[in-house]
Amino acid sequence: MAVPTRPAASTPPLPPLPLPRSPGGRQGKPPKKRRVNESVRTWRLTDRIGYVMMWAAGLLLCAIGIGILVYMAFKGLQYLRPDLLFSSPTADVDQSKSGGFLDPLLGTVLITLIGITIATPIAIAAATWIVEYGRPTWLARLIDSGIEIIAGTPDIVIALFGLVLFQQGIFGWMSFTAAGGAVFGRSFLTAGAMMSLIALPMVFAATREGLQSIPAHVREASYALGKTKAATIRRVLLPSVKANISTGAALGMGRIAGDTAIIVVLLGASLTLDPEGSVPGLNVLKGTGGTLTSYVYNNSPAGEGNAPQKAYAAAFVLLLIVLALNFAVDLIARSGAKTGLETSRLGAR
C-alpha cells in the first residue's frame, strides 16, 4: 500500500473535546419522529438573537409598508371622489368650492415626462461611453464621480443650484422674463431639467450594469463579423440592455414624481398651471405650475390651503402612481431575465 503511515504512537491521542451538551434534554422523552431537523435550541445565544432579529426586521418592514398603504387607502378613498381628478383647484376657504387636483395631476405627469426625456439619453450615452470606451481612465473616473455627486446631492440643493443657473439671461427663453430683463427662472422646462438630474443616476447605473454583464465574446462576435464598434453598440449592445434601461427609467420616474423640493423652488408650486406666453404647448412648458407633491404639501395642515381631506386624496393618488411605476420595474426585470443574455450563458452549459 502506497499510503504513508502515520508516526506510530509518538503523540498520545487527544482526549475528547469537552463540548457542552446541547440543551434541551431530549434523552428523557422518546423521539416522536425519526428525522429531526436542525433545532434552533442547539444554536448559540447570539445566533438565536440574530435569527429572531432578522425575522423581526422583515416583519417590521412588511408591517410599515402595509400600514402606510392601508392608512392612505383608508384616508384617501374616504375623500377621493372622481370629480376631484377632473376639476381644477381654486383658492377658496370653503372646501366644497376649492375644486379638485386635475392641474397638479397633469403637472406630475408633465414634469415626470420632461425629466425622464432629458435624463434617459444622457444617462445611456454616459453609461455606454464608460463601459465601451472609458479611455482615458482618469476621465472615466471623473465622470463616475460626477454622477455619484449628482446622486448624492440633496434635491433642495439641486433646486437652488437650478434657480441660480436658470435666472441667468441666456436661459431667458425657458421661463418668464420681466419687463426689466430679470429672468424668473421658474417653469416646467427649468424644473424638468433639474428633475432629470434626480433620475439620471438611476438610469445610468442600470444601463452600466446591463452593459457590464454582457460577456466580452458577444462584442467580439460582432466585431468578428466585420462590424464597427458603433454598429455593435447600436444593434447588439443597446438592444440587449433594453430591460435594464426601462427599469432604471421607471425607478427614475418614481423619484421625479415623488420629489417636492425642486417643485417648490423651481416650478413655483402654484395651485394651477399658469401658461406663459402665447405659443400653444410651449406656453405651458414656459409657465409655472404644481404637482401632486406640492398640492399635498399646500393642503396639509402645514401648508396654506389646509384641507387635509384633499391632501389625503391626492397623496393616495400619488402613492398609486409611484407603486404602479415600481410594479412596472418588477415586471420589466422579470421579463428581462427571461430574454436577456444570461439565458445564453446558461443555455451553453
Partner: peptide
Amino acid sequence: TEHRRRVSMVFQQPNPFP
C-alpha cells in the same frame, strides 16, 4: 471590418445576439 468579413470567426461559447 472588410478583413473581418473575409476572415470570420466562431467562438467557444455559443453567442447568438438577443
